[in-house]
């Protein structure tokens, strides 16, 4: 039974590692300026923990193979070095790994959260509500009109609760159901939750941030490749959660200006 256990463990370990080593399941191509740091961190961690995983499983298999159901009267013996060796090994192996990952990982985190948005970035407000995202651009005046939750009226497409009759800034605000941004331009995303918690997740951007009701957070990113990418809600928000998505449309500067003109004329 010991030998059988060993064989199964080795098969499981190799079968588990194969799809990773063969790159069968990988993250999509990165289209952000900060994503490569996260990807690098991910592949470093994969190498280190893959090594730990395979090593531990193989040692387990070998010991069980070797030390199961030996002849009666076989004297048990102990690993030379004993517990001290194990403790030292754990501190050296994992301790350095912890330090390395911890320290290098900070850089990737800092690139997302600790850099100030550029002053000339494109400001877009995103509102998450059950079960849709809406995006608002400040329009030619560069200013967002204030929000009035009591004025929200989905039937009349007033998703944000704007009051153009009284607020001058709100009159030229552009509201869209997709997030159109120019390529290679920093976007400053102002996040607002209308009802419950939601999250903003774009796999290709390596970006995920929760919406917290009552707490307006912001994010900034630069997309580097034109195309259409899915924005998903990743925070359980109710029955339509699985269907809450929008598109990020990264376009050239000219296309973006054209798009914006069309939107303004629609308003």
């Amino acid at each position: 039974m010991g030998k059988f256990f060993a064989i199964i463990v080795v098969i499981i370990a190799i079968a588990s590692a194969y799809p990773i080593i063969a790159h069968k399941y990988v993250q999509p191509e990165d289209i952000s300026t900060h994503g490569h740091a996260i990807d690098e961190q991910l592949s470093d961690t994969m190498a280190e923990s893959g090594f730990a995983f395979l090593g531990a499983q193989f040692v387990l298999a070998f010991f069980v193979w070797r030390f199961t159901a030996r002849k009666d009267g076989t004297k048990v013996s102990h690993l030379p070095g004993g517990a001290k060796l194990m403790v030292v090994a754990a501190f050296i192996l994992v301790g350095t790994e912890v330090l390395a990952l911890g320290v290098f990982g900070q850089k990737a985190w800092a690139s997302v959260y600790f850099t100030a948005p550029k002053p000339d970035d494109l400001q877009v407000q995103v509102q998450a509500g059950q079960f849709a995202f809406y995006f608002r651009y400040p329009g030619p005046d560069g200013k967002f009109g204030p929000l009035h939750p009591d004025k929200i009226d989905e039937g009349n497409a007033n998703f944000f609760g704007l009051d153009p009759a009284n607020d001058v800034e709100a009159r030229d605000d552009v509201v869209a159901a997709e997030l159109a941004v120019p390529v290679n331009k920093e976007v400053h995303l102002l996040m607002h939750a209308k009802d419950v918690g939601h999250s903003f997740y774009v796999r290709e951007l390596r970006l995920q941030q929760d919406f917290v009701p009552g707490l307006d957070l912001s994010l900034h990113f630069t997309a580097t490749k034109p195309g259409k990418y899915e924005i998903l809600c990743t925070q359980l928000c109710g029955l339509g959660h699985y269907n809450m998505k929008a598109y990020l449309d990264v376009m050239t500067q000219e296309d973006f200006e054209k798009w914006m003109k069309e939107k303004i004329s629609e308003q």
């Binding site: 010991g2 069980v64 048990v76 004993g82």
Partner: peptide, 8 residues
């Protein structure tokens, strides 16, 4: 490490 030298 304890498995080493055992008689499982």
């Amino acid at each position: 490490g304890s498995l080493y030298g055992a008689n499982i």
